[in-house]
Design a binder for these strands. Structure first.
Length: 322
DNA sequence: AAGTTACACAACCGCGGACCT
DNA sequence: CAGGTCCGCGGTTGTGTAACT
């Protein structure tokens, strides 16, 4: 029944690896590979280590082409965007960053990047007036203070299980099963996928069964929280930084409020193909929550819009939190 | 110079799903 | 199918070291 025990816990060494242990592990794996069995590996390699420990040491440190330290701005951006989309799923994030390990990214996020973002959020991260809300950077929102989170209801969208009901509608997942492709598939199944080859202006299916907003796409344009402005349309963008798009409530001819999805695009990506995926998260009891994920040239950004947000509710929530 | 604190990162722990018998 | 282990993941802890007092 079952398999042999993992290892003799009393007889395994713990703690930092010595250069000699590193050498043994490297040599063994170079000669024989892992053999698909980490439990047996340490004994065969002459190491008094648990198989788990060997696996971790190999994957996080000894494996070829591992990069350590000095994350680039691009890497920062990718980590932020993915964290915003899928939360702390480090292995998936690491899959998008060649040479980086999940452990490395996790440590980097916990020790540096999170603080960096928090620092950047000292200025208000949302603006609003009566019929106009801007989106926030979801990565930044995900690390804001607990009292801020309920204001934007972003916690409902920060983790993948909240999207689970969207995955069932069809569409095809991308080859790496990334969250972006999951979202794209979800959005596609609802006829919401927008890319540079399609008509820019589309009317989406009605997302709020209770007669709420209709949502439609228009030319990427307008507001940002990073003080940059997107101009142009189709394939032509000009922007110096990541543009944080969002949603605008607008009045149409029938005086019905509609949400206009604004676009985002990464810097220096002019004339490159871009694509976005949008999705709506809602249930019977709550107003719709909307998200946008997209980008160009392999980058992506994620944005969220909480239709319940207003200056009044925000003020009330802040007051309640104090 | 010694002690303390903060920080970075390596390593461990525990859990859940996959897999084996 | 049940009961057990294995594997991979994310959260947490431990350790070394730089910065500060």
């Amino acid at each position: 029944m079952g398999r042999a025990p993992c290892c003799d816990k009393a007889n395994v060494k713990k703690g930092p690896w010595s250069p000699e242990e590193d050498r043994k592990l490297k040599e063994y794996i170079h000669k024989n590979g892992t053999g698909g069995n980490w439990i047996a590996l340490p004994h065969k390699a002459g190491l008094k280590r648990c198989g788990k420990s060997c696996r971790l040491r190999w994957l996080n440190y000894l494996r070829p082409n591992i990069k350590h330290g000095d994350f680039s701005d691009d890497e920062d951006r990718i980590i932020c965007n993915l964290f915003a989309s899928i939360g702390s799923r480090w292995s998936i994030i690491a899959a998008q960053l060649p040479g980086r390990t999940d452990n490395d990214i996790k440590n980097y996020w916990n020790t540096k990047l999170k603080k960096k973002l928090m620092h950047g959020l000292q200025a208000p991260y949302y603006t609003t007036h009566n019929h106009h809300s801007t989106a926030v950077s979801a990565a930044a929102a995900a690390v804001t203070s607990p009292e801020a989170a309920p204001i934007m209801s972003l916690q409902h969208l920060s983790f993948p299980h909240d999207y689970s009901h969207l995955y069932s509608g069809g569409g095809s997942f991308g080859p790496n099963n990334s969250t972006t492709s999951l979202l794209s598939a979800a959005a596609s199944s609802r006829g919401l996928l927008l890319n540079g080859e399609q008509q820019v202006l589309r009317t989406s299916p009605r997302l709020d069964s209770r007669g709420g907003h209709d949502i439609y796409f228009d030319e990427p344009c307008a507001t940002t929280i990073s003080s940059s402005v997107v101009h142009g349309h189709g394939h032509g963008f000009g922007a110096e930084t990541i543009i944080f798009g969002g949603f605008q409530l607008q009045e149409d001819h029938h005086h019905k409020a509609e949400a206009l999805l604004l676009a985002s695009v990464a810097s220096n990506q002019m004339d490159e193909e871009y694509n976005f995926a949008a999705s709506c998260c809602y249930d019977e009891k709550a107003p719709p929550l909307l998200s946008l994920t997209g980008g160009a040239g392999g980058t992506s950004s994620s944005f969220f819009y909480d239709s319940t947000y207003s200056e009044e509710t925000a003020t009330a929530t802040r007051a309640g939190a104090q």
